[in-house]
Design a protein around this nucleic acid. Structure first.
Length: 1065
RNA sequence: GGGCCCGUAGCUUAGCAUGGUUGGAGCGCACGGCUGAUAACCGUGAGGUCACGCGUUCGAAUCGCGUCGGGCCCA
């Protein structure tokens, strides 16, 4: 049974019903199980971090995934699609710390690590649940019942196993390295976790006293005075030229000797407010190598007294500030590398809490480094070693969770030696199919080329514990790969692999000593890095991985180039030596309408709930899918969202329009199939069927390269242009036919077929609307078909129904109708008034329109349509135009008479002129030109003195289309007038029926009073026609008519007053 | 500072890999039309230094270089 539907597209209602239907009938699960045995499609969900709220970007991400998976499923693929959740790490720790009011790690220890971990877990799980609901609202079909969660034991084991593999392959290394360090969180953080923004910092120029040369200084510049206590060297560039200058302020006798890059001398002396200087000597940087200097604060920092300070050569030095760089290997990455290479002491007198240790000397010990900047400046100044101090605004790194400025300190950490497998990685990504291509060939490639060793250890609690045990006695190290292995090695059974339980497990070493776990946890990026096998429960489950791995497809935002695309590749190369994915679609970001990033502080954030609340999930889905190519950023625009919604509303109207008629006629598509009405199909029916299948082809092609915007735009264009604006207009009169006319049944069957096709094409993108249409028009009439549109096979284009020639013809017809519309407007004749003739004059070959002439006639409301041969035009009236500029000089005094004679020329005389002009045209091609003259009333008039003006006859109005011109004859005859007035009256009565809320088939009695005898007479002639159109049992028209009815209204038609009454029959 | 991407009407965009009639649409605006899809729909019109500059070419929105603005990532 087909049912009538709401007159407005109500997303909330539609989506609520469909969601319930899916749940009640277990449609999702069936969609997956029914494809068992099909070609496998392994999709790995990039796990969103469990923040509790999804944003527009994550919504878009899941919508893309869902559309592609639905499409694949309909195409017969057996799909693996566990949803994933990223649940460990600092962000949750920080939230829980805030919630508990903690300030440092000590608070956590006091509170109890076990209780803290429980809280983190609780937090992560509840936020996961909240987000699941939000994703489901979007219609995103993933396996939500059994998602992979990074906090599950089997997931932890996947990470453990991977690290064990890394160790077996010699890619795990413990190293003393300089790392990004958050002094508040007291942990190393990854490069990816550092957030940069502008910060004001000191900018100081410091003089380092050269040993053995009185009053001589190496000049260095720094923005981190607190690193001066850890200084152990100075670097200069071997190729730069340096100068030793004698500079003074007031008294030349009190001059100092300063060493710096020659090109920067002026700059440094200006900073130090020197009055004048002289260059003593200049030399290459190499000349300075080995030069010894003393630490400027050696008297305050006892440890510095035993360190030898010298100048070193380094390529990373730039010609800025002084051209000499202060080197503190304990506090800088380049410093550290240079320090190790040059055998410097790695001096790091700063603790994990960001405070100086006792090694920094009594004066500094216990002070927070950034707060000590001022004090270091003063101490330098007191010793006469501060040349200048100022401020600088520059980008500085911060902990992306707690926003504390990071510091660099040298600490022992665990690393994966990515630098050793970099080349293999480059080789592997070349085998991956990237959408768009440059995401892999340019962007990702660049990133990997610069890849460094990956610091995977964190000094935190809520994460996967590093499965590394070290013997306290002999230092032997062992990496454990699973819970079972841990049990076998230690004898201990623990219910949960998280801290702190795992910290207590000890293993007997072969030396007889006791092995303890290193206290670190994994960098949270390592969690998601193992997702492609963890989601298959590998290594616990050894079978699935053979069936599915590697992933066929993943898709994430372009920030994941350095994130998940990379971390997964790294972990997979370490474990398996190949890339974990076969194809990657990189998508964009959602920005605001001005192209700016959405941020809470600017207040331009739009949430997905807001959009869904106002317009519904299908609108949001179609909007994000169609607005851009997936890899471009979306500039979110409410206006465009509203526009998308409008399209859905039009689709809804197109869908619901035929329903009442079909119901009234008891239309049963299983009994009246398209095949059965084949003979009755009109050309326009064949046309819309052709268009629908052409559309299917376009959608398929676009999906082949993940051009979701092309697929969805093609569908929207079809709905608006072909279905709503054209086919529905053409088919309307046929639905009013009352008998069981084959013509009507053909229309019904066509509409149903087109809507069924459209529902399937729309299913991946607007699953709710598609389901609603399908349930009513397809499933509702045929219990044999699949229960849901999402259980259907994809609508493969039916080539037999595609007729390109017909599509071309119809395109032309539409152009002509448009042109006629244009001409009518120029001629002041509205469409309701029929015209006698439309004449098409092509100026080039056009397709044969024979089949479509009835369409042309009805849509242009004309009595006759004529198609002329190419170049043939209606007979023009020809006006002669004398050219006074030429006539004047030749005829002088006679000129005015000649001009008048030309104007007065009779038809015969004009005909002679036409003949001459044509002859002249041909003459051009001959060797000897002949001068023609027109003999008129005794004058010989050279032809260039007369021009033709073609004048369209009064009764015609013209308008151009792409292949010619249309002429519309707007002459009004009595018959045309009668019909025009009749249609005006019909339209008013229909309007009143509508106002009275009458059912389509209900009968009425109507009366029309007007004071114009002529028009009354015309209407009288059309009485039967009018009565038929408005279903009036009785109709009275005239000046004496007594108007009565349940509704009486006055109307003004073409400046003529009428009173119309409608009585419920 | 570096890499990759983007910049077309007030707004959202097509076209750009393979340079070639007057750069297409939609929304919004103005005017008109249609009417049992009706809080919908259709036509016409106005609206463009194709971010800017230089170059290649007979010819550039399209190719190259540079500048500016935006995004992601890095330093």
């Amino acid at each position: 049974m087909i049912s009538e539907v709401a007159s407005q597209y109500d997303a909330k209602e539609v989506e609520g019903k469909v969601r319930k239907f899916w749940e009640d009938r277990g449609i999702y699960a069936r969609a997956r199980t029914m494809r068992t045995g099909g070609r496998k499609f392994f999709f790995v969900d990039g796990p969103p971090y469990t923040t509790g709220r999804i944003h527009l970007g994550t919504a878009w991400n899941k919508i893309i995934k869902d559309s592609i998976l639905r499409y694949r499923s309909m195409n017969g693929f057996e799909i693996k699609d566990r949803a994933g959740w990223d649940m460990h790490g600092l962000p949750i720790e920080v939230k829980v710390e805030e919630y508990l009011g903690f300030k440092s790690k000590k608070d956590i220890e006091t509170y109890g690590v076990d209780r803290f971990i429980d809280k983190c877990k609780e937090f992560a799980l509840s936020q996961k649940d909240q987000m699941t609901v939000q994703f489901k609202t979007l219609g995103a079909w993933l396996n939500w019942e059994d998602p992979y969660m990074t906090l599950k034991d089997e997931y932890l084991e996947a990470a453990w196993w991977t690290l064990k593999r890394a160790n077996e392959r010699g890619l795990l290394e413990r190293g003393f390295r300089v790392v990004n360090w958050c002094p508040r969180c007291e942990t190393a953080i990854a490069d990816a976790e550092v957030e940069y923004w502008e910060e004001t910092d000191p900018s100081i120029y410091v003089k380092f006293p050269v040993v053995g040369e009185e009053n001589t200084f190496m000049m260095i510049w720094t923005t981190t005075p607190w690193t001066i206590p850890a200084n152990v060297g100075v670097a200069v560039h071997p190729q730069f030229e340096y100068s030793k200058v004698r500079a003074w302020k007031d008294d030349p006798e009190k001059a100092e000797i300063l060493i710096m890059a020659s090109s920067l001398v002026e700059n440094v002396l200006r900073e130090g407010r020197y009055r004048d200087y002289e260059v003593l000597e200049s030399f290459a940087g190499t000349h300075l190598e080995g030069l010894e200097y003393s630490h400027p604060l050696a008297d305050l920092i006892p440890a510095q007294r035993d360190i030898e300070h010298t100048v070193h050569l380094a390529d990373f030095v730039t010609a800025e500030n002084t051209g000499s760089v202060h080197i503190a290997p304990g506090h800088g990455l380049e410093d550290f590398e240079l320090g190790v290479a040059e055998g410097m002491e790695i001096f790091c007198p700063v603790g994990e809490d960001g405070r100086y240790t006792s090694e920094a000397g009594e004066k500094y010990a216990g002070k927070y480094v950034r707060a000590a900047n001022r004090e270091v400046d003063e101490d330098l100044a007191d010793r006469g070693l501060l040349l200048a101090e100022g401020e600088i605004v520059h980008r500085y790194g911060h902990c992306w969770r707690c926003k504390t400025p990071i510091i660099y300190i040298a600490t022992p950490q665990w690393f994966l030696k990515i630098s050793e497998i970099r080349d293999d990685m480059l080789e592997e990504i070349a085998k991956v199919k990237w959408y768009p291509d440059w995401a892999g060939s340019a962007r990702f490639r660049d990133w990997i080329s610069g890849a460094r060793d990956w610091c995977i250890s964190r000094q935190r609690y809520w994460g996967i514990p590093l499965p590394i045990w070290i013997c306290e006695t002999c230092g032997k190290m062992e990496v454990i790969g699973s819970m079972e292995e841990l049990h076998q090695r230690s004898g201990a059974s623990i219910g949960d692999l998280h801290r702190p339980a795992v910290d207590l497990v000890t293993i007997k070493c072969s030396c007889g000593g006791e092995m303890r776990r290193v206290p670190d946890v994994f960098d949270v990026w390592f969690d998601s890095a193992v997702a492609s096998w963890a989601t298959l429960n590998y290594p616990r489950d050894k079978d699935q991985i053979n069936e599915w791995w590697p992933a066929d497809f993943i898709t994430e935002g372009h920030d994941q180039t350095r994130g998940w695309f990379y971390s997964q590749l790294g972990a997979s190369m370490v474990s398996f030596g190949v890339a974990p994915y076969r194809s990657v679609l990189m998508h964009g970001f959602t920005l605001d309408d001005k192209g700016k990033k959405m941020s809470k502080s600017i207040g331009n954030v739009v949430s997905p709930e807001e959009v869904v609340g106002k317009f519904g999930a299908d609108t949001l889905r179609l909007y994000v899918l169609s607005s851009n190519a997936p890899w471009e950023d979306i500039h979110f625009s409410w206006e465009e969202v509203a526009n998308t919604h409008r399209m859905l509303n039009i689709l809804w109207n197109a869908y619901r329009f035929p329903l009442p008629y079909m119901i009234l006629d008891g239309f049963d598509p299983t009994k009246t199939t398209l095949d059965m009405v084949k003979e009755s199909l009109r050309p326009e029916d064949r046309w819309i069927l052709s268009r629908a299948n052409t559309l299917a082809r376009e959608v398929e092609t676009s999906m082949g390269s993940y051009q979701l915007q092309r697929a969805t735009r093609a569908i929207a264009d079809f709905v608006l242009e072909d279905l709503s604006r054209w086919y529905i207009q053409l088919v309307r009169p046929r639905t009013w036919i009352e008998t069981d006319d084959p013509d009507k049944l053909a229309a019904y069957a066509t509409i149903r077929e087109v809507m069924a096709t459209l529902a399937k094409l729309l299913a991946p993108f607007a699953p709710f609307t598609a389901e609603t249409i399908y349930q009513n028009l397809v499933r509702g009439t045929d219990p044999e078909v699949p229960e849901s549109v999402h259980l259907c096979d994809w609508h493969r284009p039916r080539e037999g129904l595609i007729d390109p020639a017909l599509e071309e013809e119809m395109a032309l017809v539409r152009e002509v109708v448009e042109a006629v519309s244009n001409a009518r407007q120029k001629g002041g004749r509205k469409l309701r008034w029929p015209v006698a003739e439309v004449m098409i004059s092509p100026d080039k070959e056009i397709p044969d329109l024979k089949d479509l002439l009835p369409v042309l006639k009805s849509q242009t409301n004309s009595k006759r349509v004529t198609v002329n041969a190419v170049g043939e035009k209606p007979r023009m009236e020809i006006a002669l135009n004398p050219v006074p500029k030429k006539i004047g000089p030749a005829f002088k005094g006679e000129a005015q008479k000649v001009i008048q004679a030309i104007k007065d020329a009779n038809l015969d005389e004009v005909a002679e002129l036409v003949k001459l002009k044509e002859a002249e045209k041909k003459e051009v091609f001959r060797e000897s030109p002949v001068v023609f003259s027109w003999h008129l009333k005794g004058y010989d008039i050279p032809l260039d003195m007369v021009e033709f003006l073609e004048k369209i006859p009064e009764n015609l109005v013209a308008a151009d289309f792409s292949s010619g011109t249309v002429y519309v004859d707007v002459t009004l005859t009595e018959d045309l007038k009668a019909e025009g007035y009749a249609r005006e009256v019909i339209r008013r009565i229909q309007d009143m029926r509508k106002e009275m809320d009458l059912r389509v088939e209900e009968e009425i009695e109507a009366s029309v009073r007007l004071d114009d005898e002529e028009v009354a007479g015309l209407l009288e002639r059309m009485k039967d026609y009018i009565a038929g159109e408005v279903r009036a049992r009785r109709l009275q028209v005239g000046s004496e008519v007594e108007v009565e009815g349940s509704l009486v209204k006055d109307w003004s038609i073409e400046d003529l007053e009428m009173t119309i009454g409608v009585l419920r029959g």
